[in-house]
Design a protein around this nucleic acid. Structure first.
Lengths: 301, 301
DNA sequence: ACAAAAGTGTTAAACTTACACCCATGC
DNA sequence: GCATGGGTGTAAGTTTAACACTTTTGT
């Protein structure tokens, strides 16, 4: 560094400018058994997509539920902050972790200018520590359900500038035992000048703090799209040993549709290796357990 | 909002905490003719992938080239800041714009704690204003070339914890007339606990300021992956009227491989509509011009 | 005439989709 | 026996990949 650069930096006062706080918000998903008891001895337990939420112990949004998260500290990267939060909440760092989007609308946090980096994390329920279920933190896994409840589509033709607008309203519902929280979120999808843009707006929020309804729906859609185009991340929701039926159910839960077993198995066959473990005692034919075939995952470029 | 919340907020002083500045860095791509003159009257001009770079007029990294960008201001979203920067540099807002990643390593900017949101923007060269080529700003379009120059792969087996590590070195070279800048970047790809992680590190930087070599390579790879799995964004690099050969070349430039014409045309046929415009005068059969078939783009869910 | 690019047709191989069928278990 | 899940085979339809071939132009 030369003298001019050094002088410039000596006179540069970063504190002169308005600066935001940076937060990380974590959408931590897992798949686990439904808490509902099983009547039929033959039936497998119902699996559900779960999202970890935290009950806020202090303002703002005290007593409401929000995504786990916290502020990014000086000296750590945003990714490290996300990993730190993940560990604090779940006691594991064996997770698929991806930065999904920034949420920075002014007014999104009453404390001031706070920009949030939203992360998606996928963990398998077997590695989750009870911490998340303990009482100190008031963290709970919620069953997640997302339904589109309306859709309108129209063409706006203003002097040759062809715009297609499609408005949907989604209903997000989340359950933990008798706790039910949710939100209605409007999705506005614009196609103008050959460019698509999507915007979400919280229309109604019931028990969910901040703009987290919006973040949840955004990440949930991202998760579905990712699984639709490349299913490999679904394995991050599985324990080391799993049956092919469990794997298929994980796909079905995220994609929200049934798959044909024979076809599914052919498709994923290269990613799994049979072991000699079997599960018996289910009132039906025992299932072989499989592990990931790591070579298949790694053979990219 | 109740009294407790109001009191809490009245006593909350955001300035007590260390806060970073938020910058947006823009990787603005377009495709345009190579500046090299064409000898053969029959040959079409060579197309290249171009990236807009700015010569820094003041420290830090004075006289080096960097991605266009700037600080996010209070009251605007990160996305709005990106759009503002895009307009400032290119005088257009008709672009594909996507937030790609956060770069937040401490020490990445000598002025202090500065976190950068990296955006990818795709514009078509016909809408670009001369501003970018003017002298005031010292902004220039650089031809981009990225080559992997080495690759090593090994398995680390530490007490059953199977880790595969794959290290590559990429050479990034960028040209504008007689200006040549570039960087060597090491890619470390880890596959551990069934989770893949990728890390980039600038090994050597020649004329490129900050950690922008890293950002460029990251976004370039993202662009390629996106085009490989869903080619629709390539249309954002095309003007309103285009020939199928131009479109095919855009794909080939980004994917860095040749495609078979007959197959390519079948694949993209639903996305284009023939017009009665033709291009003549090329010393070969005239080409029909096409426009986007907007309905095909929009028929998702 | 001929080189360059524009544009189409044909075929084999690969993959997807749908459905039918058999197997093994616990009560 | 029978409901439930575990597991496989086959055939039709669709998509991809490779290649061969024809057309049209400016010099």
């Amino acid at each position: 560094m030369n003298k001019e650069e050094q002088e410039y930096l000596a006179n540069y006062d970063i504190a002169k400018y308005d600066r935001p706080s940076i937060a990380v918000d974590m959408a931590i998903f897992t798949i686990s058994d439904s808490h509902l008891d099983n009547a039929d001895y033959r039936k497998l337990p119902d699996k559900r997509l779960k999202l970890l939420m935290i009950k806020r112990g202090q303002p703002p949004y005290k007593d409401m539920w929000a995504l786990p998260g916290g502020f990014c500290k000086k000296g750590e990267t945003v990714y490290e902050a996300a990993l730190r939060e993940l560990k604090e909440e779940t006691a594991t760092d064996k997770a698929y972790l991806e930065m999904c989007n920034v949420f920075s609308e002014s007014g999104r946090d009453p404390r001031g200018w706070i920009i949030s980096q939203a992360f998606m994390a996928l963990i398998n329920s077997k590695t989750v520590n009870v911490k998340a279920g303990g009482d100190a933190w008031e963290a709970r896994w919620f069953d997640v359900e997302l339904k589109r409840i309306s859709k309108e589509q129209y063409v706006i033709d203003q002097s040759g500038n062809n715009t297609i607008e499609s408005d949907s309203v989604f209903e997000l519902k989340m359950y933990h035992n008798d706790i039910i929280i949710g939100a209605k979120i409007k999705e506005k999808r614009l196609y103008r000048d050959y460019h698509e843009s999507v915007e979400y707006d919280v229309v109604e929020s019931d028990g969910i703090g901040f703009d987290h309804g919006k973040i949840i729906i955004y990440i949930l859609n991202k998760l579905r799209n990712k699984v639709e185009t490349d299913g490999k991340i679904v394995f991050d929701l599985m324990p080391e040993y799993f049956t092919l039926t469990d794997l298929q159910k994980a796909f079905e839960i995220i994609l929200d549709r049934k798959l044909l077993t024979a076809n599914f198995r052919r498709k994923i066959s290269e990613y799994v290796t049979e072991t000699d473990r079997i599960i018996t005692g289910g009132g039906h034919r025992p299932a072989k357990m499989f592990i990931r075939n790591i070579d298949a995952f790694y053979k990219n470029d």
